Computed example of a mutant assay.
Amino acid sequence: MRKLLMMLTLLFLVLPVACAKTSQVTDTDDANNNQFVIKKNQKKWQSKIAKADIVHSEFKVTKQPVSRTLDNLKNHNQVVIKGTVNNLEKMHSPKGMVYTKATVCVDRVLSGDDSLVNKKIFLALEGGLVSFDHWYGEKRNGDREMLIKNDEFLLPEIGSQIITGLIPHNLDEPLEYNQALRESGFTSQNSFAINTPQYNFWVKNPKDSKYQLNNPKLRNSEDNLAKSLQKLTNEINQKYNTTQKGQDH
């Protein structure tokens, strides 16, 4: 009887350890599988943009409020996320415009709805692949691909980490833009709009150690807006950059 009790005790002690190991193995397998998918998507995207003609573009002027502090960022948005760009794809766009469909895995919610953690969402990023005819409104080079590069918003690399504020899509309005989103698989449940992407979007590319503003013009500017956003960038790295700090705070 005593031997049976000892065996049962050992069994109960071993079970939690075994479960923990199984969980760790599962997490590792998921991470490895995700990296495999990212590398596959990187290769596919690079092959598509390799031969495209490059055209530079800029944002149209808007009057949206710019977040200059973390409190601003959280107050101006429904949710602020830290995520990983899993894929970039060509998508439907209104005439004379071009957007790229980004699949983003939400790694952490910095403010807002925590239920988004580990979910994949779609974002429409300005710039990307488009046919010559669609971009210029002509019908003579239907097979010719253009890569539109927005000089104030670089397309993040697949596999990069991002931090940004998001607001809901209202896809019920009868707009050509909304129609393009719906044709590309966007819904009000699986997608968001980026609030002030040229000012409040941070990227840490796979080979980088820190997040940086995704607007090269702001990174190289010395005006008051640029200085305040650089200060916010430093704060974001201090609080949310796992590479720099070793852990999130």
Rank of each mutant, 00 (worst) to 15 (best):
I167W: 06
E58Q: 09
K74P: 06
L147K: 06
V117P: 03
L218Q: 12
V109A: 11
L232Y: 14
N75T: 06
A52R: 01
H134N: 02
Y177M: 13
M6C: 10
K139S: 02
H249A: 11
D114A: 06
S47Y: 14
I167R: 11
L11T: 08
L155V: 11
G112C: 07
D107Q: 12
A18I: 13
Q230H: 15
K43Q: 10
R219Y: 04
V37Q: 11
T9L: 15
T84N: 05
N87K: 12
I49W: 09
S93T: 04
S191Y: 05
W202N: 08
A52V: 02
V109G: 13
N220C: 10
N220Y: 04
L123C: 08
S115C: 03
D53K: 15
F59H: 08
V14D: 10
L4Y: 13
P16Y: 06
Q247P: 08
V55H: 06
T69L: 06
K101Y: 03
I49D: 02
L13H: 09
Q64V: 03
Q64I: 03
G127N: 12
K63I: 00
N224C: 10
S47K: 15
F201H: 00
K21L: 13
W202I: 02
Q78D: 08
T243C: 08
R144S: 13
D151E: 04
W202D: 07
Q64M: 03
K40M: 15
L116S: 01
A20Y: 07
R68K: 13
N75I: 10
